[in-house]
């Protein structure tokens, strides 16, 4: 409601560094999302590892997998139940455009998450590797702060 420049910037910095995703997997990509949270890739390093099961406590919805027509209303409802500010990452080709499952007579899926909810970052791949998801989250952080992380993630050589 009230916007004060400096406060807003501090809040954005905090938001970017504490993106809590929702425990929400749709298909294959969900496994890679789990892998990204697990021991080797560890999303928690960036403060994004607190998977909250309830949408009321999440900041980030990772649409990981194919959205079937039957599932679409639930996705919308869950997104609407998340409190603002909230962001969406479309993970994998299915969530971007229907991926390998889209063809002219396809009857079962929604070709792209952006047809039903606003998407901030697209992570392509079928499925994307966990590194890809992490990259996507870092991009989202840049988008939120318009600057980058609190501490810039060093490039891995």
């Amino acid at each position: 409601m009230i916007k004060i420049g400096l406060l807003e910037e501090a809040l954005n910095l905090a938001r970017a560094n504490s993106l809590w995703p929702m425990t929400f997997g749709l298909a294959c990509c969900a496994i890679e999302m789990m892998a990204a949270g697990a021991a080797r890739f560890d999303l928690d390093r960036f403060g994004a590892g607190v998977f909250r099961p309830s949408p009321r406590q999440c900041d980030l919805m990772i649409v990981a997998g194919t959205i079937s027509k039957k599932m679409a209303p639930a996705v919308v409802r869950l997104w609407e139940q998340m409190p603002a500010p909230k962001w969406v990452i479309a993970m994998g080709n299915c969530a971007i455009s229907g991926g390998p499952f889209y063809y002219p007579t396809q009857y079962a899926i929604v070709p792209g998450a952006d047809l039903i909810i606003p998407v901030d970052v697209y992570v392509p791949g079928c499925p994307p590797r966990p590194e890809g998801l992490i990259e996507g989250i870092l991009m989202l952080e840049e988008k939120i702060t318009k600057r980058g992380r609190l501490r810039k993630f060093r490039d891995v050589k």
């Binding site: 409601m1 869950l78 609407e80």
Partner: peptide, 22 residues
């Protein structure tokens, strides 16, 4: 928080949560 938080919108925003179903 009431003053500085943004507002979201949506028909089902105030609906009770039950795993994404009505």
């Amino acid at each position: 928080a009431y003053f500085i938080a943004p507002r979201s919108f949506g028909k089902t925003r105030d609906e009770t949560y039950e795993c994404g179903m009505p």
